[in-house]
C-alpha cells in the first residue's frame, strides 16, 4: 500500500530519496549511491521502527519546505539544518507526529550539511536494480522538485515519542580527523608527498554526491599519476594529475584511471558527508584489521538501536 505523506513546496538545493544503496551492480558501472551519511539514515530508521536500510529523504544544505498531507510518525536525523515545524524548532534525533497541514522547513546549515527524514514504513518510490536511491546521472530516478508529492509504505503511528540520548548523537565538526587504509599505489607517489599528505590539513573546496575536491598540499608522482583503470568506490581518495586529492563519494564512478592513496574507513565516511565547503580534514593511516573492527563496532551500535525496544525518552 502507498500513503500520501507530504507535498514539496520548495525542493531546496538538493533533495533526493536515498536508502543504503545499490549493491551488486558495480561491475556494470553502476555506483553504490545511497545516503551520503549512512549512519544518520540508519539511526532515523531505527527510531521510527523501520528496517535500518529503508528509504528516507536526504535534504542537502536546505532551502526546503514540505507540508504534511496526513498524520505520520517521522524522525529527523543528521545535520541541523535549522529545521522548523510550523515556525518552531523541530525535534531532532527523536520521533514526532508530523500532523496533516504542518509545515516543515529546513532553512540552512547550523551543524552538518545533510539531514534525513525517516518515516514509519519507509518512503515509497520506484525501485531500480533493487534500490530506491536516486542516481540522476545514471537515469535512476530524479531529484525532488517543487510540487512533487511523497508517499510512505505505512500510515501507522504505533510508537511512543522516543529519541536518541545526547551522548549517542553524532556531532558534526568542521575540522575532522578521518582514518584510511592505504592502497597498493603508494609507490606511484613521491615518498615525501605521502608523508606530507598525512601531516597536513586539507580544506574542502567543493563537493557533491560524486566527490569532494580538496585544497592543500599538491602531491607529486614518481613518474605518472595515470594508471590503467581499475575499481574505485565510495571513500576512495584519488589523486588526479593536478596533484590535489579528491574523495569519491556515494555516486562515485566505479572505475578510475588515477592513482589512489587509499580508502576512508566506513566508520568515518559520515564525517566527510557532513563537512561543509571550507571544512578541514586530517588523514590518518590505519590497518585494514583495525578498520574492520571499527566498522563492526558501528554495525553493532546501529543493530542495537533497532533491537532495543526501549529507547531513552526525549524530554
Amino acid at each position: 500500500m502507498s500513503y500520501l505523506l507530504c507535498s514539496i513546496e520548495k525542493a531546496g538545493i538538493l533533495t533526493s530519496i536515498q536508502d543504503l544503496g545499490r549493491f551488486g551492480y558495480q561491475h556494470y558501472g553502476v555506483p553504490i549511491s545511497g545516503a551520503m551519511d549512512k549512519v544518520a539514515l540508519q539511526i532515523g530508521n531505527g527510531l521510527v521502527g523501520n528496517d535500518l536500510g529503508a528509504a528516507c529523504l536526504e535534504v542537502t544544505m536546505g532551502g526546503t519546505t514540505l507540508q504534511a498531507s496526513h498524520d505520520h510518525l517521522v524522525a529527523i536525523t543528521g545535520a541541523d539544518l535549522d529545521a522548523k515545524l510550523n515556525g518552531r524548532r523541530a525535534p531532532l534525533w527523536s520521533t514526532f507526529i508530523w500532523r496533516k497541514g504542518d509545515t516543515l522547513t529546513f532553512k540552512g546549515p547550523v551543524e552538518g550539511i545533510r539531514a534525513y527524514i525517516a518515516v514509519q514504513g519507509g518512503l515509497d518510490s520506484d525501485s531500480i536494480l533493487g534500490s530506491q536511491s536516486v542516481y540522476e546521472r545514471g537515469q535512476m530516478g530524479r531529484h525532488i522538485q517543487s510540487g512533487d508529492q511523497l508517499y510512505s509504505h505505512s500510515n501507522q503511528i504505533d510508537r511512543k515519542k522516543i529519541g536518541l540520548s545526547h551522548d549517542k548523537r553524532p556531532s558534526y565538526d568542521k575540522d575532522i580527523d578521518v582514518r584510511m587504509v592505504v592502497s597498493q599505489h603508494e609507490s606511484y607517489i613521491k615518498k615525501e608527498s605521502i608523508e606530507a599528505f598525512f601531516n597536513t590539513t586539507y580544506t574542502v573546496s567543493a563537493g557533491d554526491r560524486m566527490g569532494i575536491q580538496l585544497d592543500g598540499e599538491a602531491m607529486t608522482f614518481q613518474d605518472t599519476g595515470d594508471i590503467i583503470s581499475e575499481a574505485v568506490t565510495f571513500g576512495t581518495v584519488q589523486v588526479p594529475s593536478s596533484g590535489t586529492p579528491v574523495i569519491l563519494m556515494a555516486d562515485s564512478q566505479t572505475t578510475g584511471g588515477y592513482v589512489t592513496i587509499g580508502n576512508i574507513i566506513r566508520a568515518d565516511l559520515w564525517k566527510i558527508a557532513q563537512l561543509p565547503p571550507g571544512g578541514k580534514i586530517n588523514f590518518h593511516k590505519i590497518s585494514h584489521e583495525e578498520a574492520r573492527k571499527l566498522s563492526k563496532d558501528l554495525h553493532a551500535f546501529l543493530s542495537s538501536l533497532q533491537k532495543e525496544a526501549k529507547y531513552i525518552p526525549s524530554k
Binding site: 549493491f23 558495480q26 561491475h27 581499475e230 575499481a231 572505475t255 584489521e289 574492520r292 566498522s295 563492526k296
Partner: peptide, 22 residues
C-alpha cells in the same frame, strides 16, 4: 561477497566486512 568488479589488470572483490575478514 557483495560485488566483483573486473578491470584490465585487476579483479576487485567487495565483501561484507561484518561477516568476513581480508
Amino acid at each position: 561477497i557483495t560485488d566483483i568488479v573486473p578491470s584490465y589488470t585487476v579483479l576487485t572483490v567487495y565483501f561484507n566486512e561484518t561477516l568476513t575478514s581480508f
